[in-house]
């Protein structure tokens, strides 16, 4: 059970208000027309899925309805940091 700080609401709220939306920082292909099938497949389906530090996208679905990022340890479930869309994480995997 997570207690998550929403950087947009600037408040701690319970996990039920939030929805996890998977890996963060997935860039859209810059030139979609020239992408190969392999590049499209990897953009669509292939994910980091690390055991350890993970940067992920969450949405405050039952609150401000805005997206933001969390850096979290997927083994211990400890939330390392919360940061807004457009910002870069300060905690990264070694």
């Amino acid at each position: 059970m997570f207690h998550i700080y929403c950087p947009n609401c600037e408040e701690y709220r319970e996990e039920e208000e939030f929805h996890a939306s998977g890996q963060a920082h997935i860039p859209r292909p810059l030139d979609p027309d020239s992408c190969s099938d392999k590049e499209w497949g990897e953009y669509m389906f292939f994910r980091k899925n690390p055991r350890g530090i993970h940067h992920e996208l969450w949405v405050h679905a039952g609150g401000c309805r805005k997206f933001f990022n969390i850096t979290r340890n997927t083994q211990t479930y400890e939330i390392k940091e919360v940061y807004k869309i457009g910002e870069q994480p300060s905690v990264v995997a070694k």
Binding site: M1, F2, E15, E16, H19, A20, G22, N49, R51, H54, E56, R72, T74, Q75, T76, Y77
Partner: peptide, 13 residues
């Protein structure tokens, strides 16, 4: 549970 996790445990909701 909607998030990824290797901890063999999930959330109460």
């Amino acid at each position: 549970d909607g998030y990824t996790g290797y901890g063999q445990r999930g959330s109460y909701p």
